[in-house]
Write a protein that binds this DNA or RNA. Structure first.
Lengths: 331, 331
DNA sequence: GTGAAAGCGCTAACAT
DNA sequence: ATGTTAGCGCTTTCAC
């Protein structure tokens, strides 16, 4: 790889001048500029982002971090796509950190990110109390949280109203005549899981449906726990007549169990999921679900991040997007 | 962020000694080491990967690139997860480049990757003839290709036998009694699309089924083209009785169209897909599909990459994994 | 308008 | 066993 020095030599100028034409700020003689441009072309010179980053942390390093709990969850994939589209517009590359809801892994990734000298970070932290991430925010790293916030510190956040979304879903179940409604929760360490439970409880309470604690199952937000917890629910002596699944992976797992048991949906057991997927229509049966605008969450987060990178002083924004109940035929 | 200099000062030693304990290669006096370790802790010092990378390209920069065409395709997500697990084991971070099958975007990402001084790259290139990527391989960058190779140059490749997978799928369709079998292809620029077509044609030919060119539709490997091309197929005066869908996104799109038209699967139209998904069982009906071991592809590619990083001279390997026909009830 | 030189944080000879 | 120093590729004063 040719360096600036090579270019300078070839063009018969100093590296300072090369730097000047590259960043076309100061005035450079047209003839000199032409010579340099020619040398750059001939040598196929590409500036090193690494050297640039080392040299001045103050200036754009064109690198940002994305820290998410589960890339195999389609929700985060869409969020990522939203972020990426914005990053690309700004000529930024992304270090992707998928920590699998493992706090140790998250910690290591956070260290790496810091060590890489990123310009900014978009994160869905393992816990809203994450001390390490909080410290990074305090130290001035531009951070935008998605899906989950951070307590006790001012930070930009983009998420949906989880409680309301869950409330709407469960209320719809109630209005449809279901009375024995179960909830399969994701990890309770995740704020959204707790808020969805709150929405669930609220909807039951307001509709005078007795709350049965045995109908609330706690898992780890993954497919497998949907499979297992749905099974536990269905083999109860007096099983539920409807299930509210805490996220898309859980929903898919629950569907698997229901189908394995040969039960009909919604006649034998109804189901409604949090998180829509574009293939929800092709599921058996078409799934009724609470849709989060995942792509938009990512896009907005990306926009907020670049705003903050360009203006560290701007006051923090909490952006709450709305959910949509996509009514199909699983309940 | 504390630097090595800060640590050295605090411990009352030179930066060289600090570097020594950090890379614990040379001998350092135990007392000195202790002092330095203490200073590191107190300052919460973290080495800068950026400086390290700038300093010596020869040594591990702990950064690698992943270049894939579509992160919203679950196949690539699983491949990525496989890569990531291996990268994490080696303390590597990943720059994720999702080029959306857009050659211009791919080119820019490749430039960025080079400019970031990555140690190695795992790529599913837009074309098997990609001159830029080829040049990077020639220039000595460790590269492993997944899903698609590179012509005219020696490079490690991990993929499945696409032709055989397709052959098996279409043969299964034939054996099941279908005679009017259509193929919805992904982008023909992608080798796997062409190989799957070859397998499709081969299976028809060997079973003495007349090939109808109108039954082959070419799209762009995305959901939308599955929706559209399946529709074109179904509104033919004499439509097919079975569809072989070129990848998972196309399959999902085709399913959407079939359901929208209120057709029964497999009575009215049968479907078999390339690429399995873990929720295939929950689709309507459970989908028969050719399974690629996506996670393993990523994992193997990661392993090969680290092998190559550690031994640039090792001769290239082409690893061909096998596909499985997952028989369910969509045909 | 252009060049010289310092320095970002680190590693690796080369000294001592 | 430890320190000194050059240099990775770049930006940015400060001269001229």
């Amino acid at each position: 790889m040719a360096s600036m020095n090579d270019v300078a030599k070839r063009a018969g100028v100093s590296i300072a001048t090369v730097s000047r034409v590259l960043n076309n700020n100061s005035n450079v003689n047209d003839a000199t500029r032409a010579k340099i441009l020619k040398a750059i072309k001939e040598l196929k010179y590409q500036p090193s982002r690494v050297a640039k980053r080392l040299r001045s942390k103050s200036i754009s390093s064109n690198l940002l971090g994305v820290l998410i709990p589960d890339i195999q969850n389609p929700f985060y994939v869409d969020v990522f796509k939203g972020i990426e589209d914005i990053a690309y517009l700004n000529n930024y590359a992304i270090i992707m950190c998928n920590f699998g809801q493992d706090e140790k892994k998250e910690k290591l990734y956070l260290e790496i990110l810091q060590s890489e000298g990123i310009d900014g970070l978009i994160a869905a932290p393992a816990s809203e109390d994450d001390p390490q991430l909080k410290k990074m925010v305090k130290d001035g790293l531009p951070v935008v949280c998605v899906d989950r916030g951070l307590t006790g510190i001012d930070v930009d956040v983009v998420l949906v109203d989880n409680q309301k979304g869950a409330y709407n879903a469960v209320e719809y179940l109630v209005k449809s005549g279901y009375k024995r409604i179960a909830y399969i929760s994701g990890m309770t360490a995740i704020p959204s899981s707790r808020l969805r439970e709150k929405g669930y409880l609220e909807a039951l309470r307001e509709n005078n449906i007795e709350i049965d604690r045995n109908f609330i199952k706690y898992g780890d937000s993954k497919h497998e726990s949907g499979v297992r917890l749905c099974d536990e629910l269905l083999k109860m002596p007096n099983p539920p007549d409807a299930i509210f699944a805490g996220n898309n992976l859980i929903t898919l797992g629950a569907l698997e169990t229901i189908h394995k048991r040969g039960l009909r949906i919604p006649q034998d057991i109804a189901i409604i999921g949090f998180d829509d997927m574009y293939w929800s229509n092709s599921l058996n049966p078409p799934l009724t679900a609470v849709r989060q605008p995942a792509y938009e969450i990512g896009k907005r987060a990306g926009e907020l991040l670049f705003q903050r990178i360009n203006d560290t002083e701007r006051s923090c924004i909490q952006m709450i997007l709305k959910t949509d109940l996509m009514i199909r035929s699983s309940c």
